[in-house]
Nucleic acid binder design. Structure first.
Ligand code: MN
Ligand code: MN
Ligand code: ZN
Ligand code: ZN
Lengths: 146, 146
DNA sequence: TGTTAATTGATAATGATTATCAATATCAAT
DNA sequence: ATTGATATTGATAATCATTATCAATTAACA
């Protein structure tokens, strides 16, 4: 009885779109299907390519537009690599950190740690900064790539 | 007797270039002077503009080339923002984290924390990953902008 | 089923980065 | 100081990613 979390997430995304009076179009569905099913961050171009493998006539402009829309809704988030930061992956509920394989780009998320937030806030205050947010990504080699 | 750490760093960078058999050219000097003296991350375009204010005829291509060279030598590092990651700032000796003002982009660095590395490694191992590196940036409001 | 405004895709425009290449300048050897 | 080998430069073109434009299409709702 393996529950497909991708399918689940896709349903939730569709509901959220409707709640925001955003139409459920084939273009948006295609991008969302790919993003909810992916196991690594994808660039706009990669999403476009994958969508075209299954469905035809998806404009690259619509991919960018959908990425914008999903970002605004906090359903996806930009993933940063050492070289650049063009890729997107699904954002998870609540604040999460990412652990990314430098070989295959597969990634998993892990939750925060209470002491961590306190430490970040304290480090900022020491320097007179009011810390509002933070970013944490770990890079390593996944089990499959070892 | 305020010591200018920018000047100091510039001298070190020049020495490192020489040690790697890289020529000390006016173009490289211009980019290095700006980067060692800046208090916030700068894009290639910004560096180009600033260089031209003081010295003429600096090609944008040479800015990109010098940024590449300095990155390879670990003398500068890419700074990532929520929107993108085109800016560079001087990398500091040893592993450091950044605290960046979301208003003015001014940034300061702060050192690691022993327990932090252990925590990162442990979180990775839990998921079968061999953690090699991490990235931590804090975002907040600096004293001047509050 | 018809109405209407949101959305789409093709295309053009923009902007950033990289590749090309002849001209120049660095640096070490003389 | 002069020379020569070659790394480096800047102008330009080429490429690549992203955004803007706009007429045609279509999702959502009455
Ligand atoms: Mn966190
Ligand atoms: Mn660290
Ligand atoms: Zn992997
Ligand atoms: Zn500030």
């Amino acid at each position: 009885m393996s529950q497909d979390t991708g399918q689940q997430r896709l349903r939730i995304w569709k509901r959220i779109l409707r709640e925001h009076d955003l139409r459920l179009t084939p273009a948006r569905k295609a991008v969302m299907e790919i993003l909810t099913g992916c196991d690594r961050p994808l660039t706009a171009q990669e999403i476009h390519d994958r969508a075209r493998d299954h469905r035809h006539s998806l404009g690259i402009a619509s991919v960018y537009r959908t990425l914008d829309t999903l970002s605004d809704l906090d359903l996806i988030q930009r993933i940063h690599h050492l070289q650049g930061c063009e890729a997107y992956g699904p954002a998870l509920t609540g604040h999460k950190h990412f652990l990314i394989c430098t070989e295959c780009e597969r990634m998993v998320a892990f939750p925060g740690w209470d002491e961590l937030d306190d430490y970040f806030k304290a480090e900022g205050e020491k320097r007179g900064y009011q810390v509002k947010d933070h970013w944490l990504q770990l890079f390593g080699v996944c089990p499959e790539c070892q």
